[in-house]
Design a binder for these strands. Structure first.
Lengths: 136, 136
DNA sequence: GTCCCTGCAAATCCTTTGCACTCCT
DNA sequence: AGGAGTGCAAAGGATTTGCAGGGAC
């Protein structure tokens, strides 16, 4: 088991994620932490985000071709991904044990109980799409 | 509406995908088509895959940080993604209208009925993992 | 003092794009 | 002829990695 030493940069990253419910990307974390540590590098942010997710302190969400998102909430919950803007939302309070049982029986492997993702278009992007369509 | 002209490269790509149930990546398509058109370029493969998916002839599956996968089967069905090897599998014959209704009611947007993805570890990778674990 | 962590830059992976040329219609 | 399609190479976004110096223990 690898030893982990204290670093104030890592604690700042952890604290930022903890107080943030929006599943920020590495770049968003970088921009936020930079206000506190102007010299921090993006590489360090990536290294720490990966470290924290390997420890199980946070979850790394790789659900699109775009940038990964990071979630401080490691409890079981599903996500919704907007195909338009790439944002990741929590799927509120949906618990589907019968789904996992039913799906698990036919799946080509073992499904992580909380690794279920719905894809669609979020309300923000729907609103923008309608605005654009009516304007043309 | 943009005019689309015939190209033998595109038809070869379409034919390859049609006869392939494994959701190949652009690179896998490239390697396969190269046997028929040794001078085809990866850029052309990407352009045609995007063109075909814009036409609705195929589906582009962007479910991980790794390479996208392409699916000739455009009918409604769900997918399983292996977090280990990145492969995409079909979820066989699972139809969950009650899931879409229940989930849709609380979702932060409109869910595409067939855009539901289960993440986990596939049987192949489970087998490899066990082999590696027992060997150490 | 040792080893982890950092900042920086270069490298990597996947995908898109600009350009000159070719092929379809 | 006109414009879509091609091959090639360069550019692009996101992430990882190598290295020399700095900090935790």
């Amino acid at each position: 088991m690898k030893t982990i030493k204290y670093s104030k940069q890592r604690e700042a990253i952890r604290a930022f994620l903890c107080g943030n419910r929006s599943h920020p990307t590495a770049d968003e974390v970088y921009e936020a932490i930079r206000r506190q540590f102007p010299n921090i590098s993006l590489g360090t942010v990536y290294r720490n985000l990966n470290l924290l997710s390997e420890c199980g302190d946070i979850r790394k969400l790789s659900y699109t071709a775009g940038p990964d998102h990071f979630d401080y909430d490691t409890s079981d919950h599903y996500h919704f991904v907007c195909r338009d803007c790439g944002r990741v939302y929590d799927m509120p309070s949906i618990c589907l044990p019968e789904l996992n049982r039913e799906a698990g029986a036919e799946a080509p492997g073992v499904i992580d109980s909380h690794e279920l993702v719905f894809y669609g278009i979020c309300r923000d992007c729907l609103a923008k799409g309608e605005k654009k369509a009516s304007g043309e």
